[in-house]
Simulated scan of single mutants.
Amino acid sequence: MRFLVEEISDGVSERRFTHGDVPGVLWTPAGAVGGRPLVLLGHGGGGNSRTPVLAARARRLVTEYGFAVVAVDTPGHGDRPRSARDAWFEAEIGALLAAGEPLSRGIAEHTAALAERAVPEWRAVLDALGGLDEVGAEHPVGYWGLSLASVVGLPLVAAEPRITAAVLGLAGHESLTGAAARVTVPVRFVLQWDDELVERTAGFALFDALGSAEKTLHANPGGHAGVPAAELESAARFLERHLRAPVAPGLPAGSVF
């Protein structure tokens, strides 16, 4: 992991880095010493690890909850090379949003291919962060990602035992049900009732497919990009509750009572 630049403001250290050819950003409390829970923050289609909305969410997770937060550019996004297929994906998403039409099979196949590439990248970044004193390898890890970041997040959460809780949603396609069935950690699933990209029944089906014993469905009125601020605040408290859960004396980390 190679850190490129650090900016400190309002008590938050924001460091841009590269891990191999994957760009990303790490947010931690300024001057932090010792490890802490880590939140992996995914971005939506067409975004990147430096999207202002994502950065603002990361900074609040640092200042209000004391977490470390990391985001990386999904293949074909941000500073990463873009193929003709990536350009088509971005244009197609825009066209579907403008027309108020649901995701096509072509987009579902493309995002699945992006996820296949992104999962090992996320796991490698997680390995590298475990070696940093201000993050550490012994603390719980959470994942927060909606829309494209949920398509990436489902197979990641299913494959990565270090992730102990996840916020997912704004996604739904039959190609995701296999990964969803392998997810067993607590999940908060967000659904927009009037989502123009994800059909409501597809969102319900994906939630139903989750293998988690503890899962909650949070549905709000509005379109794909209209998740209310209160829902986002509540999702942060969900992560805080699970990443800082009490551990009984003598029980291994992660044993909740």
Rank of each mutant, 00 (worst) to 15 (best):
L126D: 11
P75C: 07
S104M: 00
A95V: 07
G44D: 14
P120L: 06
D127V: 12
G31M: 11
G94M: 08
V125E: 04
L54N: 06
A56C: 06
T63F: 10
G20D: 05
V33T: 14
L61I: 05
L126P: 12
A115M: 04
P81A: 05
A124G: 13
V53Y: 14
V69T: 03
R36M: 01
R57F: 07
L41V: 05
A32H: 08
S49A: 13
A71Y: 09
V5C: 12
G31E: 03
A58Q: 02
E121M: 03
W122V: 00
L129R: 07
R105C: 01
R82K: 14
S83T: 15
A56F: 02
R80T: 06
L97R: 14
E64W: 09
D21P: 09
S104I: 06
A98E: 01
G94L: 06
V119M: 10
D79A: 09
I93M: 11
E101H: 09
V39W: 08
L114G: 11
A32W: 09
G106C: 03
E101G: 02
A128M: 00
R57L: 14
H77F: 00
G94V: 03
V69H: 06
H19D: 13
R123M: 12
H77R: 02
G20I: 02
F3V: 11
R82C: 05
A112L: 13
E7D: 15
H19C: 06
G130V: 04
L40S: 02
G76T: 11
G42P: 01
R36I: 03
P23D: 07
G66S: 06
L61E: 12
R16A: 15
V12A: 01
E92P: 04
V119H: 02
I107F: 03
A68R: 02
R50I: 06
R123C: 08
A98W: 02
T74K: 08
L54F: 01
L40Y: 07
L41F: 07
R80P: 00
I93N: 06
H43A: 01
E116R: 13
I93D: 07
L132I: 14
R16P: 14
R15D: 07
L126V: 12
T51W: 14
A30M: 06
L40F: 00
W122N: 02
